[in-house]
Design a protein around this nucleic acid. Structure first.
Length: 816
RNA sequence: GCGGGCGUAGCCGAACUGGUAUAGGCGCCAGACUUAGGAUCUGGUCGGCGCAAGCCGGUGGGGGUUCGAGUCCCUCCGCCCGCACCA
């Protein structure tokens, strides 16, 4: 009989479901284990890439449960976002309909995997019962000053006449994904969350076990730098100055110019009439091109003199003021001191415009000549007035002290991290619960009025403008304070808000008195193990850490980090080695694979491709190997031994079979513990090959044989849950369910082979291999090695300098 | 440019703290069973020389440490992924 995956899988899925086998109970004496995999976005483009993160995490969940944990493995959908709205604009389907249809399709498809998801905890973020709490959190943050409104540069598409979300700006050319027009920056009033208030704490990873890679990415993204911010007066204007930030106050005497960002607020005021034309032209160019030009690595640094001069506060030297787009308005103060001798960019700039390049930090052994390139290292201060002769490190502190003493500057820490811009000029997202009243100003929506619901009867215009701006019923509202007519905020929230706290909602998805039920949260939280793609390293994974710290400071949770451990799986690629995409025609549809091979085969294949964190290309032939393996497993367990088979081979001895049982338990246990699914499956394949041989021999059908089969099926169960259940219950006649049986334990004694191959080397080269008892003493091993005829052959009269014995492995005879 | 990672058979990949390189799978070759097989089973499969026993070479190149290096150190080459004028 051939193994019929289809009927077996649907049968057990139905029974598990009916028995509530996968429901995670809130009150349970077992230790809890909260395993979370990043929830999927319900795009219409379903492929096997959705299974790749999911199947192994289900195997972990099943393994952990067998280890005695009360495991929660929830599932939900990241349901807000741009593709739904684009479908609405392009095809006239309402985003809600589009999203819910996709979710329905995905639910069915995901269920066919046979994973132990607790569907009773499902969370869908576009449900008002969910996004109500986004709004609640927003209001709480607003009260604490963590949500604020400010003018900010955003990406703007001049053709569609609308702002674009980050994700809508595509390609190296940074164009609008819909019309291909290059985006520009535009200043708009936007809502921000004050993530920078937590920048320093977010740099502390001591309470989590996350991959080095993610920690490095987050650290760089936050980009902490220490320096001094100080004021530079403008020449001839006693009351005008601008501030600059520097990490090198020790170089301040080398300043020969200043640069303001083109968008700096003082530019217009300081520009002299004869330079206005050039300045305006440069500003225009910078606004239109900065983001595009930035991509060319060899872009020449340029700028424009604005006609005004600044005064170096340390030596009163006047220096020209330029604008240049290499100075960013978004970092530091949007202005810098130009010290060409000790900064690469300033050096290039000074060369281009013929500005002097005086050395103020002498490199060790400096000959007094001018520099060929900027010198960035430490050295001795020169040309720096009273600070001459100091080391640059000491000069750093002394000049900083002097600036503080004179009240013109202070020590400062700057971050690359910006506050989180959450406003989206989009319909399909959580409405920001704010009302604008002409009399009362910015008024938060009262908590009792939450949720602010998205109107269903929205009109999606081809221009891409948010329907909320034209929806009279949504827009017009009474001010909650004075009762006069007012307007709603029409922007919605970034969807990364949804994913910042979804793990908390799974704890009590239907709870109505708060984002989650405190008592249950105390039991389940935080997440013990999180898995997902590394592409979220500096977005979602940073935001959710921020969110947790805010919740902690609100008294909602008592811990500092949302997820203790993190694992980043790789990406599954198409048969051509490229990322799977519809346009490339290399997409593998899991439905087809399940139809042809069954879910267990697909699961095992995905885990067998290679290390989980590396991903890899889909290989159509490779899955045939797994299908053959499961067919052999089926025959092995379900069909009675045939005495005639394997006549020439007596198979393993009883001791050997016992060894294989315990050896395999150890290997599979260690591998699952470390998420090494590929080698766990290889271990099972080896075991099955041994069992195959045993089946033809005298051991078949004895008690040890039965134990071997039970062990094999038991170890296979987390990886291939259906076939294991079928074999366990129907053929081995063991109690339902294999998935609730204790994980097999191994006996370390039995897991050690009785006899081993001892490698004999002469000067590190293998010369002989002999089979010996595993427990052989070093002295015995030494004697056997020296007694080996082959070893003797290589000794050949030379004197033995040393004999190195590695117990259980080898003997190396060193001769001279 | 800076940061992180990687390089092992024809292909995907094993190899724990340095200790038999290439487990397991794919593919390929041969055989068995078959009317037939792209089904199934069995055996073989790093390269060179050799009838064979065996010898030699071999983990991107070169060098080093060590009794012993895929693993550690230096250096070069190639590939992938982030960030990219951050003052």
């Amino acid at each position: 009989m051939r193994y019929e995956a289809g009927s077996i899988e649907t049968k057990w899925q139905a029974k598990w479901e009916a028995d509530g086998l996968h429901h995670a109970r809130d009150h349970d004496p077992r230790p809890k284990f909260y395993l979370l995999t990043m929830y999927p976005y319900p795009s219409g483009d379903l492929h096997v890439g959705h299974w790749y993160p999911m199947a192994p995490s289900d195997a972990i969940a099943r393994y952990k449960r067998r280890q005695g944990f009360n495991v929660m493995l929830p599932i939900g959908f990241d349901a807000f976002g741009l593709p739904a709205e684009n479908a609405a604009i392009e095809r006239g389907i309402h985003p809600y309909t589009w999203t819910m249809d996709n979710i329905a399709r995905m639910r069915r498809q995901l269920r066919s995997m046979g994973a132990m998801w607790d569907w009773a905890r499902e969370v869908v973020t576009c449900d008002p019962g969910y996004y109500k709490w986004n709004q609640w959190f927003f209001l709480k943050m607003y009260e604490k000053g963590l949500a604020y409104r400010a003018l900010a540069p955003v990406d703007w598409c001049p053709k569609d006449n609308t702002t674009l979300a980050r994700e809508q700006v595509v390609g190296d050319e940074r164009v609008c994904e819909r019309c291909g027009t290059p985006v520009v920056k535009k200043n708009l009033e936007q809502w921000f969350l004050k993530i920078t208030a937590y920048a320093d704490e977010l740099l502390d990873f001591s309470k989590i076990e996350w991959p080095e890679r993610v920690r490095v990415l987050q650290t760089n993204w936050i980009g902490r730098s220490q320096g001094v911010e100080f004021a530079i007066p403008v020449a001839g204007r006693p009351h005008t100055s601008f501030r600059v930030f520097t990490t090198r106050p020790d170089t301040v005497f080398g300043m020969t110019f200043c640069v303001l960002a083109p968008e700096h607020p003082l530019v217009d005021e300081l520009t002299t009439p004869e330079h206005r034309r050039a300045v305006e032209a440069y500003k225009f160019k910078a606004a239109r091109e900065s983001d595009i030009e930035r991509l060319s690595t060899e872009k020449e640094r340029d700028g424009v003199f604005i006609g005004a001069y600044a005064v170096n506060p340390m030596n009163q030297a006047p220096v020209p003021i330029y604008i240049a787009d290499y100075v960013l308005v978004t970092y530091g103060t949007g202005a810098i001191m130009g010290v060409p001798a000790h900064d690469v960019r300033d050096f290039d700039f000074a060369r281009k415009y013929g500005l002097p390049i005086p050395v103020v930090i002498a490199p060790p052994g400096w000959d007094g000549q001018s520099l060929r390139e900027a010198y960035l290292g430490e050295g001795t201060m020169v040309n720096s007035g009273p600070f001459d002769g100091l080391s640059s490190q000491e000069g750093w502190q002394r000049i900083a002290d002097e600036m503080v003493r004179r009240g013109i500057g202070e020590r400062r820490v700057n971050y690359r991290l910006h506050d989180w811009l959450i406003s989206r000029q989009r319909y399909w997202g959580t409405p920001i619960p704010i009302i604008y009243c002409d009399r009362c100003g910015v008024v938060p929506v009262p908590y009792d009025d939450l949720p602010v619901r998205l109107p269903e009867d929205a009109e999606f215009r081809p221009t891409g403008e948010s329907p909320l701006r034209y929806h009279e019923g949504f827009l017009n509202v009474r001010c909650p304070r004075c009762g006069e007519p007012a307007r709603r905020e029409t922007d919605t929230m970034d969807t990364f808000i949804d994913s910042s706290w979804y793990q908390y909602r799974y704890v009590s998805p239907h709870y109505d008195a708060g984002p989650f039920e405190p008592e249950k949260a105390r039991y389940w939280l935080p997440v013990d193990q999180y898995t997902g793609g590394v592409e979220h390293a500096v977005m979602h994974l940073l935001y959710t850490r921020f969110w947790t710290k805010v919740m902690r400071d609100m008294g909602l949770v008592a811990f500092d980090e949302p997820m203790i451990r993190l694992f980043n799986q790789g990406t599954i690629l198409g048969t051509d080695g490229n990322k799977m995409s519809k346009s490339k025609g290399n997409v593998v549809n899991p439905d087809d694979v399940v139809q042809k091979y069954g879910a267990d085969t697909l699961r095992a294949y995905l885990m067998f491709i290679g290390p989980w964190d590396e991903g890899g290309p889909w290989n159509t032939r490779g899955i045939d190997g797994i299908a053959r393996f499961l067919n052999r497993v089926w025959t092995l367990v379900a069909e009675p031994p045939k005495p005639a088979a394997g006549a020439g081979d007596a198979g393993p001895s009883e001791r050997e079979l016992d060894y294989w049982i315990h050896h395999t338990i150890r290997r599979v246990t260690d591998d699952l513990e470390a998420f090494r699914f590929n080698t766990a499956i290889a271990a099972l394949m080896e075991f099955s090959n041994v069992l195959q041989r045993a089946k033809g021999g005298p051991l078949a059908d004895g008690p040890l044989w039965q134990e071997a089969l039970r062990t094999f099926v038991s170890l296979l169960a987390p990886l291939c849950p259906h076939i294991a259940e079928e074999l366990w219950v129907e053929h081995l006649k063991q109690p339902y369910s294999v998935h609730t049986q204790p994980w097999p334990a191994y006996d370390p004694q039995k897991a050690t082979a009785e006899r081993i191959t001892l490698v004999l080397q002469v000067n590190g080269r293998v010369r002989d291999r002999i089979e010996v008892a595993a427990g052989i003493s070093d002295a015995e091993a030494r004697e056997l090695a020296l007694g080996s005829a082959k070893v003797q052959q290589y000794l050949n009269g030379k004197s033995v300098a040393d004999v190195i014995v590695v117990p259980g492995r080898l003997v190396n005879v060193v001769v001279t």
